[in-house]
Nucleic acid binder design. Structure first.
Lengths: 138, 138
DNA sequence: TCTTAAAAGAGAATAAATCTTATTTAGGGT
DNA sequence: ACCCTAAATAAGATTTATTCTCTTTTAAGA
């Protein structure tokens, strides 16, 4: 929790109970939750947090690079508190999304694109979207 | 245009002026348009097409694998009529999205994952989301 | 402790997408 | 070519996620 406070302070953000609750919710949840799911989770301890506040706080976090949006095909946004470079595994039968970290792969891709490049495009970041099926239930 | 008709027939879909217009719009537009943009485009020749029809037709096309949704961070859906395996280049400063085809890369990835695999996950499809900047204006 | 800019609350407003119901139409069968 | 019917479209109300506006509250530096 102190670690969460430090994160906000580093970015020059005021420490509020709402921000702490939302960031804590995000960091304890690896399932890339929606704003809805975050609200549900924090309403246990913060019954009167406003919907708009949650969206606003999430936007603030994104702006300050504390969290990221996850790109999906659905019209509900999902959020990710893990900022280290990683890829995503998407379940083709459910809404499940998991992180996939693979430094060896990153090096392979980096080497490939340094050698080959993409015409008229300056690469900043490469993310894999791996679609498939999870063989074990979460 | 006959080619578009054939596409619908192959999937057992009725050929309607609305479907032809929407698919034609999608195939002539490489910018991964939104439903809104498609409507604007086809309203020139089809002034009284209903919004709901456009969404319905797009869903039907997705269901029959004639088009695909593009995963973005925004809450407007974008559509792609190119079904051959390809990746996407995302502009970090605008809404521009372009296709990126690279068979050599696909082979590299395939070889990598056949060798290495992902624990408890059966890969069906791998897409790269390459973020960066376009060095030439469209 | 005081001050004030920043943040949160409440709920109205917006925008994309979906749903409902009535009407129309494509295309197979006669 | 003409029916017939299931499928498709039109129109517009509705839903859902998200954003906006305005007022009140609060964090944290002076």
């Amino acid at each position: 929790m102190d670690n969460i406070k430090k994160k906000l302070q580093e970015k020059g953000l005021k420490i509020t109970p709402q921000r702490l609750a939302i960031l804590q919710a995000l960091m304890s949840n690896k399932s890339h939750p929606t704003a809805e799911m975050i609200m549900e989770y924090i309403r246990v301890n913060h019954p009167n947090i406003a919907t708009g506040t949650v969206y606003k706080v999430l936007d603030t976090f994104i702006e300050h690079q504390i969290i990221k949006k996850v790109q999906t095909e659905k019209d509900v946004m999902r959020y990710d508190a893990i900022m280290d470079h990683h890829h995503h595994l998407f379940c083709s039968e459910s809404e499940r999304i998991e992180d996939y970290v693979d430094i060896e792969l990153d090096e392979l891709l980096q080497a490939y694109f340094i050698k080959k490049g993409i015409p008229d495009f300056k690469i900043e970041d490469i993310r894999l979207h791996v679609n498939g099926k999870f063989l074990r239930i979460e």
